[in-house]
């Protein structure tokens, strides 16, 4: 599952406004590819990461956000939001999704259904 999702053709879909997410918080987008956690950091940067910690599948969206990282609520792994990779002594990657903000609206890039298999 460690494929580079961002290099595949994507379709951009609106998933809501930045203001819908509390600062240093996250919300979940349910997709056919599984849950995707959309994070808003304290300085309003937005990231999208698969909502599964590479360690034990913990819901990263429920973790404490600090700088551009999140601490998994289950066993405190720290995941870098830009790369989806575990930091510190741990190894693994959650996988990221392309995301951009236009006029305060969050656009999430998802693989085209045809490429999803």
């Amino acid at each position: 599952m460690a494929q580079d999702i961002s290099s595949i053709d994507v379709s951009w879909i609106e998933v809501g406004k930045v203001a819908d997410i509390p600062p240093a918080g996250a919300r979940v987008v349910k997709s056919s590819q599984g849950d995707i956690a959309v994070f808003r950091t304290a300085d309003d940067a937005v990231f999208a990461v698969r909502d599964r910690c590479p360690h034990a599948g913990g819901p990263l969206s429920q973790g404490i956000v600090h700088d551009a990282r999140v601490t998994c609520p289950l066993h405190n792994w720290v995941i870098d939001l830009a790369s989806g990779a575990a930091t510190g002594p741990d190894e693994g990657c959650a996988g990221t999704y392309p995301v951009r903000v236009e006029d305060g609206v969050i656009l999430l890039g998802l693989k085209l259904p045809a490429a999803a298999a």
Binding site: V29, S31, V38
Partner: peptide, 9 residues
């Protein structure tokens, strides 16, 4: 207590 949007992708 809610998710952001139930998007279909």
């Amino acid at each position: 207590f809610t998710s952001l949007v139930p998007a279909e992708g």
